[in-house]
Each structure stands twice: as structure tokens, then as C-alpha cells.
Simulated assay, not measured.
Amino acid sequence: MWCVVMFDLPTNTKDQRRAASLFRNKLLDAGYSMIQFSVYAKYSPTLANNRQTVQFVKKELPDYGEVRILHITDRQWSMMQRFYGRTPKKTEQKPEELALF
């Protein structure tokens, strides 16, 4: 499963810019990767982990702006088409799992 967080946060004032930057940094600290500006994603092997992620995001929401959270399967993620200009690019793959002994 992939958890995708998309947001549109106001940046008209210094406080709003600070809040938007803090939100982005907290997503990065939580293991999200920037897919596009204001679109971040994180792979999680189970839906239960995604539920924890949603709780984290809800806790860190700024006071203003719109945030959407979307869960998609690996299959849906792999069917995504990605371009840079007119040049096709490979879609990000799920991270390799690390086994600890």
C-alpha cells in the first residue's frame, strides 16, 4: 500500500509559509518522499501502518489549507505513468524490505 498526501496550503503571510514548510518537513521526517510539489508518498506494507500514518498527518495538520490523504495499492502505483516534459520516466518502486537479525 502507498499513502499519498496531497496538500494546498496558503503561503500569503510569513506565518503561513512557516506552517507550510513545517508540515512538509514533518512529512519528510516521517519517511515520506516528495513526488511532486505538495504531493508526498510513503510505502507501507500493510493497511494498519497506513492508519498510523493518517493519525500522524491529522495530528500535524496546519490550521489552514486543504490536505487529502489517498491510499493506493502497489498495482495501482505501478500503473502510474510519469513524464518529465514529453520524456517518459520510470515510476518509483516500493522500497526493498530490510531484514534485521
Rank of each mutant, 00 (worst) to 15 (best):
residue 72 I to Y: 07
residue 14 K to L: 07
residue 20 A to I: 02
residue 25 N to R: 09
residue 81 Q to R: 11
residue 99 A to E: 14
residue 32 Y to P: 07
residue 35 I to S: 08
residue 81 Q to I: 09
residue 91 T to K: 05
residue 74 D to E: 12
residue 99 A to Y: 12
residue 38 S to A: 11
residue 62 P to R: 02
residue 49 N to T: 06
residue 37 F to S: 04
residue 2 W to N: 06
residue 72 I to W: 00
residue 13 T to H: 01
residue 28 L to C: 00
residue 95 P to C: 00
residue 4 V to K: 13
residue 99 A to I: 14
residue 77 W to Q: 11
residue 41 A to L: 10
residue 96 E to C: 09
residue 79 M to G: 12
residue 46 T to R: 14
residue 71 H to I: 10
residue 27 L to K: 06
residue 7 F to V: 09
residue 52 Q to H: 13
residue 29 D to G: 13
residue 30 A to W: 04
residue 83 F to D: 03
residue 47 L to I: 04
residue 42 K to T: 01
residue 99 A to F: 12
residue 17 R to N: 03
residue 35 I to D: 05
residue 4 V to L: 15
residue 101 F to Q: 09
residue 37 F to K: 05
residue 35 I to M: 14
residue 99 A to Q: 05
residue 64 Y to T: 02
residue 46 T to I: 05
residue 64 Y to P: 02
residue 41 A to Y: 01
residue 63 D to R: 05
residue 67 V to A: 10
residue 28 L to K: 09
residue 17 R to E: 01
residue 4 V to N: 07
residue 49 N to L: 15
residue 5 V to Q: 10
residue 71 H to A: 06
residue 21 S to D: 02
residue 34 M to P: 02
residue 15 D to R: 04
residue 89 K to L: 15
residue 10 P to I: 01
residue 89 K to C: 15
residue 97 E to C: 09
residue 87 T to Y: 05
residue 80 M to V: 03
residue 63 D to F: 02
residue 98 L to Y: 05
residue 100 L to H: 04
residue 6 M to G: 02
residue 67 V to S: 08
residue 3 C to H: 02
residue 14 K to V: 02
residue 88 P to R: 15
residue 19 A to M: 09
residue 12 N to L: 02
residue 2 W to P: 04
residue 100 L to I: 12
residue 88 P to V: 06
residue 101 F to H: 10
residue 45 P to I: 12
residue 47 L to H: 04
residue 90 K to P: 10
residue 26 K to W: 03
residue 73 T to I: 09
residue 1 M to R: 12
residue 18 R to Q: 05
residue 18 R to I: 01
residue 3 C to P: 00
residue 38 S to E: 05
residue 80 M to Y: 00
residue 67 V to Y: 05
residue 33 S to E: 11
residue 45 P to H: 06
residue 5 V to W: 05
residue 42 K to M: 07
residue 90 K to V: 11
residue 43 Y to T: 07
residue 55 Q to Y: 08
residue 25 N to E: 09
residue 80 M to L: 07
residue 91 T to D: 06
residue 6 M to E: 04
residue 42 K to G: 03
residue 29 D to S: 13
residue 72 I to S: 09
residue 29 D to L: 10
residue 88 P to A: 15
residue 3 C to S: 09
residue 59 K to G: 13
residue 62 P to F: 01
residue 39 V to N: 02
residue 94 K to L: 03
residue 23 F to L: 13
residue 101 F to E: 08
residue 14 K to S: 03
residue 95 P to E: 07
residue 61 L to D: 04
residue 56 F to P: 08
residue 84 Y to T: 03
residue 73 T to D: 13
residue 21 S to T: 11
residue 30 A to Q: 08
